[in-house]
Write a protein that binds this DNA or RNA. Structure first.
Length: 363
DNA sequence: AAGCCGGGCAACCGCCATATC
DNA sequence: GGATATGGCGGTTGCCCGGCT
């Protein structure tokens, strides 16, 4: 191929499309936990997913990664989005960088479905829509300054301040947007450097006082949010603990099951310890232990796959579950579709619940 | 109760930027 | 320097669901 245009990122005839099933989610999560995501294009095949690499990436970034925050946007967040959109335009990824745990897709959706309409309804320029009752501090005159070096927005409510005291040391705790005088390519360039965003947060759904987020109470990742996490997370030990925190913490049956499973216990101890454990995930011991619990989990989920000869020959390279051959689609059908799951539960929890049922039933 | 309609959101598409060979 | 591979981004689509008639 040459010249303009690119070949499709994958063979669309051979990939599954549409909503992700819990089993696919689980498979993607477990694969990335263990192997990271160095190569999105190769990932689906290695993980045994009949998905396009791009689709895997989107699913991970927008939904499955441990620091993603879900639930309704707070007024403060919405106000900030309006401010940032005024300054940056449709640069959703840049805007999202100022909201730890929020994805560009989510912010884009919020803008298109709520904020844009609200502003239109108010028939006011967005800059004058900031009659917030919070302590949100905006630019003097409500307009972003262009060319000046002053702070554009400082946004820290009392609620956020108190929340910040409970944050982990590295967790951002206020939203501060500064014009970086070193950036000349855009007159309104806002910092995207995570290092420049220390103290950045939003009044958020991980605030225990915020009950508006009905689905986040138990299954959401706790406090791992930080800007630039996508680049850093695989090297961050907290990343792994975050992953292991969120799917299972709310389900005592599942915990009980795990407690009875020694290989997993030892694995969790590994995972939940320090930064070196991240490397351990890739080490032989980590792989063995991971393999045990993943095999166990797959077994319980009915996702076991008989390894092919080539897989057997590659056992030291590929983890057991990362088959070179795609998992047979019918294996996924054993799990309920998201829409069939208990609506009161988080999507992932529904998967865990289903697995729990299967396990209890089998016992 | 059934059909219609609109909103919300997850996922896809295609282009661009960057890295690598 | 050009070709190619890959990741990332923004726009758009299409499905699902709740409200309304």
């Amino acid at each position: 191929m040459g010249g303009k245009g690119r070949s499709p990122c994958c063979d669309k005839e051979k990939v599954k499309r549409g909503p992700w099933s819990p089993a696919e989610d689980l498979r993607l999560i477990t694969f990335i936990q263990k192997n990271g995501h160095d190569n999105w294009r190769a990932l689906p095949k290695r993980a045994g997913l009949l998905r396009c690499g791009k689709s895997c990436r989107l699913r991970w970034i927008n939904y499955l990664r441990p620091d993603v925050k879900r639930g309704n946007f707070t007024i403060e967040e919405e106000e900030s989005i309006i401010r940032l959109h005024e300054a940056l335009g449709n640069k959703w990824s840049k805007i999202a960088a100022h909201f730890p745990g929020r994805t560009d897709n989510e912010i884009k959706n919020v803008w298109n479905t709520h904020l844009k309409k609200r502003l239109k309804r108010q028939n006011l320029p967005s800059s004058s829509s900031s009659s917030s009752s919070t302590t949100t501090t905006l630019l003097s005159g409500g307009k972003p300054s262009v060319g000046g070096g002053e702070e554009l927005i400082e946004h820290q409510s009392a609620e956020e301040t108190s929340m910040a005291t409970n944050n982990k040391p590295h967790e951002p705790c206020s939203l501060t947007i500064q014009e970086n005088p070193n950036h000349h390519d855009s007159p309104m360039e806002l910092t995207n450097d995570p290092k420049e965003l220390t103290g950045l947060t939003t009044s958020s759904s991980n605030d225990s006082s915020n009950e508006s987020n009905g689905s986040s109470s138990s299954s959401q990742v706790v406090g791992m949010s930080r800007p630039g996490a996508e680049e850093q997370q695989m090297d961050d030990s907290n990343y792994f603990s975050g992953i292991f925190d969120f799917p299972f913490e709310s389900d005592s049956y599942f915990w009980d099951m795990f407690n009875d499973f020694e290989p997993l216990q030892s694995n969790l101890v590994q995972v939940l310890h320090g930064a070196d454990e991240a490397n351990c995930q890739r080490s032989g011991l980590g792989q063995v232990e991971n393999g045990k619990w993943l095999s166990y989990l797959e077994s319980e989920l009915g996702l076991e796959v008989t390894p092919t000869e080539s897989e057997k020959n590659n056992q030291e390279i590929l983890p057991k579950y990362a088959t070179e051959q795609p998992i047979f689609p019918e294996a996924f059908d054993k799990l309920p579709n998201p829409t069939e799951a208990d609506e009161s539960m988080d999507y992932f929890n529904s998967n865990v619940a289903f697995a729990t049922q299967q396990i209890l039933h089998s016992n």
